[in-house]
Amino acid sequence: MATRTLPDGTRTWRRFTPSQSVVRWMGWLIGVAVFVWCWNRISESTTWFFVWDAPRIAGDIISRATPPKWPYVNELWWPIWDTLNIATLGTLGSLVMAVPVAFLAARNTTPSRFLVRPVALLIIVSTRSINSLIWALLLIAIIGPGVFAGIVAIAIRSVGFCAKLLYEAIEEIEQTQVEAIAATGASRWQVMLYGIVPQIMPALAGIAVFRWDINIRESTVLGLVGAGGIGLQLSASLNVLAWAQVAVILLIILAAVGLGEWVSAKVRGAII
């Protein structure tokens, strides 16, 4: 904020001083330049002929996809069950791992701030940074394709997410309630049980349901890399360009995602 003297001698108000303005304009300029450069690179590696042809191709795909091949649904019940299991068992598995990690990562419960906490934070950031599809690729390479690889992939991917939210919740608890339990002569574990756990239970339940909702979405596509679930059928149908089947699968995925969101909203509503 600054006042500035105009040539005719009157003073006027400006939001920024001249040097601030220059810096801001330079910032915008650099931003635009970066964006243009990025766009050019994308444009270079794009075959624009196909892009101009896109509307026709899109129309073609839509016409082949309609009407959806409804009888195909009967081949999908088992994959849907698998998908649900990947999401649910994966979420349960991740919670089992995330709870201890969160306690090790929270400033007020970690046994050692300089040794244990950084390790816990590293686990959190590395599992979070890597997409579940990549975890699935890796696990398929290690333990072979199938539902089990999908469950483990989802579980590992979710550890960081759940542990991060949970340790933030642990750090926000009311310390006096913990003190009060400690003052009764309770042991370390009893303090955790009576002072800390009741305070984080709602957060834990909320996180579990929230992550389960996300995992339903993620588990629908794990099959693309061979980790079980409805994604396998999607991948197979795409390979033979059976768009009418693809349409059915996509609609089912949408329904599953909608259902997951509805259930998670209901449960969260009941908890809070």
Binding site: I42, S43, S45, T46, T47, F50, V51, I57, I61
Partner: peptide, 9 residues
């Protein structure tokens, strides 16, 4: 990808 072809676009 099916519509626009392979690539970063």
């Amino acid at each position: 990808v099916a519509i626009f072809g392979f690539g970063p676009l």
